[in-house]
Design a protein around this nucleic acid. Sequence first.
DNA 1: TATATTTCCGTGTACGCACACGAAAGCGTA
DNA 2: TACGCTTTCGTGTGCGTACACGGAAATATA
Lengths: 354, 354
Amino acid sequence: MGKTHQPERAGVKEIARRANVSIGTVDRVIHNRTGVSEKTRILIQSIIKELDYQPNIMAQRLASKKNLRFTILIPGVSAETEFWKAPLIGIEKAEQELKPYGIHIEKYFFDQNDRKSFVGLTKKILKDGSDGVLLAPSFIGESAEFVTACQVAKIPYVLINSDLPEVDSLSYIGPDLFNSGYLSAHLAGYAIKEGKVLVVNISKDLDNDHHLLRKETGFNTYFKDKGISIKVVRADIRQTDDVFITQQLSAVFAAHPDIQGIFVTNSRVSAVARYLQQAEITDKLLIGFDFLKDNIEQLKKGTIDFLICQKPQEQGYKGIMALYQHLILNEVIEKVHFMPIDIITRENYAVYGN
Amino acid sequence: MGKTHQPERAGVKEIARRANVSIGTVDRVIHNRTGVSEKTRILIQSIIKELDYQPNIMAQRLASKKNLRFTILIPGVSAETEFWKAPLIGIEKAEQELKPYGIHIEKYFFDQNDRKSFVGLTKKILKDGSDGVLLAPSFIGESAEFVTACQVAKIPYVLINSDLPEVDSLSYIGPDLFNSGYLSAHLAGYAIKEGKVLVVNISKDLDNDHHLLRKETGFNTYFKDKGISIKVVRADIRQTDDVFITQQLSAVFAAHPDIQGIFVTNSRVSAVARYLQQAEITDKLLIGFDFLKDNIEQLKKGTIDFLICQKPQEQGYKGIMALYQHLILNEVIEKVHFMPIDIITRENYAVYGN
DNA sequence: TATATTTCCGTGTACGCACACGAAAGCGTA
DNA sequence: TACGCTTTCGTGTGCGTACACGGAAATATA
């Protein structure tokens, strides 16, 4: 049992035999190198096509000592940017898988509050060279410049988490922001039949955070589309510490006592949850983003009702894999890859990501 | 760029050098074959551990011509059992990936309404032999017998979609039924604040469908846990044609005009949706299971509000991969692998499975 | 015609491992 | 001592491919 013979895929040897040449010549054709007459080249190519020859990945990787260097440039992980822990884990998973294929990953982390740190690293990457880049283009202008330089240097690059308009990236892998907001509104619509809904944006650099805006637009559009009479109140909070947030929210709730639910447009939802808890406000629907430790804590307690999550780990994983598939396997990569929009509740968070 | 040398993982050669033996001897130790003195065996093993030696998968697979035959036994796909299309796709994806590693999959499909077809196929599998089995144990008794026989024949097996109590499977990969019901109740609880909720079981073989019961239990438990005063009405429908379903539901709605929402415990939710549509009943919350074509149609229309889905494709994929990891990579497989519980709505179905 | 240059192609080795084969050493027996 | 058997281990070959090297033939140059 279990000794059946493989369906005898033909290899270079067989091709060489049929073409009456040596395997060396076949090899030259396969890697379209020079040194083969046009006649034999065409002959061999036709045989390759006829036999539907596919190289043995094993032997190929074994024999070639070609190593590739991928480079990633994403925000560093801090309390402020815990989100980026997940993509990094995905990247490291891909790294593990691809290590035996001779692929190495150089990791650079920039400070999301410091454009210069970003630019400095892009310069370094261009100087050192790279075979493929994975980029989180937080700073739009600077990122555009960088990818243009990559283009010139013929380095393929993949964007994750945010897209860059009108650039020729190998692929964009990230969230569908609009729909995640739209979906949140749909969920809110089930629980809230009257009164108001509060949309909360919490960010130090609010004006540059197109993420939040897209989600908010999606959220508002739902109510517009459905002709629902719920009023949407908005609160922009430009500091991320609990004290400031508490202060701002108190004011909003004082002004709008009939708020029935809250939609936080990013992962800072746990701060809002803490406010509600401390202010002993219960029975308010609370929806926010991202599978972070604090958020899950509040989800378990029931303070947060729904977390919308877009598989941040897979963003990193798939980003690296896209480079691999393009550069090693010569596969065609889809230009835009939206991540699924996952709804996390108390009941399913434990199996999320299984 | 891109020609850096691999971090020089040590191979058999290096181990042999350090142990002052030939690679042949090292090889014997690695595959714990006979023909090595106890002394050198221990020496070599210690060096292996010290160097954290990991064989080069490429070279390993290349040099060994060992082929494996996996066998799957799952329900055939029909209009009645469209669900099983997805696991099969996952299995075929795994098959594609593993083909270059010399793994072949023999596929057997039984009729879910015919115990004999199942038993017949199990006999055939045992007669033909196999290196690993993937089983959907729809018929509990017969499946238990089969896996016992596998045990005796030392064939590892993986169960998908339903578990079998007290058997020594390599792994169970499938849904967490109870929590999917519990989650559904939670969702229903948002929209329904008074009146009744209807639980609908639709199955020809209802008494043997432990799936439905588990989900229903989860559903009921939620309301019990939360002390919610919503009353749960139950309808068991033992025929699957639309006419019969319509008839039964009409009776239920006549008896309970204050039903606010419906929970269908399996994928037949689209039939209920069609009933609601035809009876022009709107504004009833409708929750059901599975990413099937008909269900998605109704989801798009808004008749169905939520579909609970447990990545059926991945169940097949991961099942095969578990066999591979166990037999080829000698990895340890987790005994129970619950699939994530996904919530599908109009907004996110399009990106589901990305 | 002899020699240099180019074009084309075959040979050999290496990649890391599996495994068959046979050599050498140790042991006992006649 | 001679012989055979067992235990222990080294050598060699092959898996399918990549690539360096060098040889032969074709062409150009003197």
